[in-house]
Computed example of a mutant assay.
Amino acid sequence: MNNNKNVKTLVNRLNEKVGNLFKYNGEVAKQLFLHDEFNLDGKVDISVERKFLAEVLKYIPKTYHINLYDETQSTSDFSEIEFSKITHANVFDQNELIMTVIIYDVEDGDWMFRWNHNIRMPEKHIYFHSIKWDVDYVKPEIVLMYELLDPIDYHQIPNYRSVIDSLSYYQFVMLRLVVGDERINQALNSEKKAI
Rank of each mutant, 00 (worst) to 15 (best):
M1E: 10
N2L: 03
N3C: 15
T9Y: 06
L10H: 11
V11W: 02
V11C: 04
R13G: 11
V18D: 13
G19A: 12
L21M: 13
G26M: 08
K30P: 03
L32E: 07
F33C: 03
V48K: 09
E49N: 09
T63P: 11
D70E: 01
D77E: 08
F78W: 05
F78L: 05
S79M: 05
E82C: 02
K85A: 01
H88M: 06
V91A: 14
Q94S: 06
V101P: 07
V101D: 05
V101M: 10
D105T: 12
D108T: 08
M112D: 02
I119G: 12
I119N: 11
R120T: 12
M121G: 09
K124D: 03
H125L: 11
I126A: 05
I126N: 07
I131Q: 14
V135T: 14
E141D: 11
V143E: 01
L144T: 05
M145S: 03
M145L: 00
L149E: 06
L149Y: 07
P151N: 15
I152D: 09
Q156V: 09
Q156P: 00
Q156S: 07
I157G: 04
I157T: 03
V163Q: 14
Y169C: 01
F172D: 02
F172M: 04
I184P: 08
Q186M: 03
N189D: 03
